[in-house]
Design a protein around this nucleic acid. Sequence first.
RNA 1: UGGACGUAG
Length: 316
Amino acid sequence: IYVYNVLLKTLRRAEQWEIARGVAEKMAEDGIIPDNITYSTLISFAIRCRQPEEALKWFQRMRESGCTPDAVTYSAMIDVYAKTGRMDEAADLCLRMQKDGLPRDAVAYSTMIKLHGMQGNFEEMMDVYEEMQFKKVVPNVVTFNSMISVLGNAGKTQQVMRLFHDMLSSGLKPSPVTLSLLFRTYAKARNAEEAFELYRTIKKEGWTVDTVVYNTLLSLCVQLGKIEEGELFHQELLEDKKCRPDDWTWRTMADLYVRAGRLEEGRQLASEMLQRGRTPDIPIYMSLIQGYGRKKEMKTVVELVDEMQAGKIPLD
RNA sequence: UGGACGUAG
């Protein structure tokens, strides 16, 4: 069973769902009874491969086989229901978990926080956070990130900052996810100054960043029209040996130039990508086409569409 | 050996 579970986990990394199904069938043929680890691996596997029905099917099978879900399986299933918008069923499982006498750990609480947050139940979300503290379950980085995500999206900037402060004073270091969430929050609040201040703090504290953090900051610059700053941060990304620009970076930079009305530079970006052996994708061309279209430079629009077809990028 | 969080039209 151990070998099968490891095999499934390995397949999950490669997102080979069809093979995994075969392995699961072979397990049954060999008379090996799947355990909680097998089922939770299959459930998270299915969700990662965007097959929620498969996740539900395996949970059903699990119950039929008489295997009782443990805390991990419950959390995985609550997440499945949340991701498929079946909030009532998710809440139901939370209760059932409690009835089964399974204590909630930090992951279970974080999942519940997300569940309330997705529905816009901010007070209930904060209640879960309080209950968690009352039960002496220590919130981790993801717990804070989940709350920051919800509150930032809702434009509740003050609350986000309070939580970020709580997080730091409880001795946790912000992860790259935290930092990108904070930049997203500032973008929503249209507060470029605080965002730039945060960037300086990141450098000062030596917090770890990744490409997504840079991309989120660049996106903020686009949204708030901070063109020179955007170019500066892009430069810093290129000089940062630990991060590499990805497709999102190119897209955001194309947007930056289009917003600045510097369309030629946006086009240059596309050729630069081609030189580097990368293919500009549909969103990049969309920005450029929109930019030129707005200026009524239809000749260039046609050129861009031709360029897409020459680059074998199918028009969607 | 299994579960939760971030950037796009």
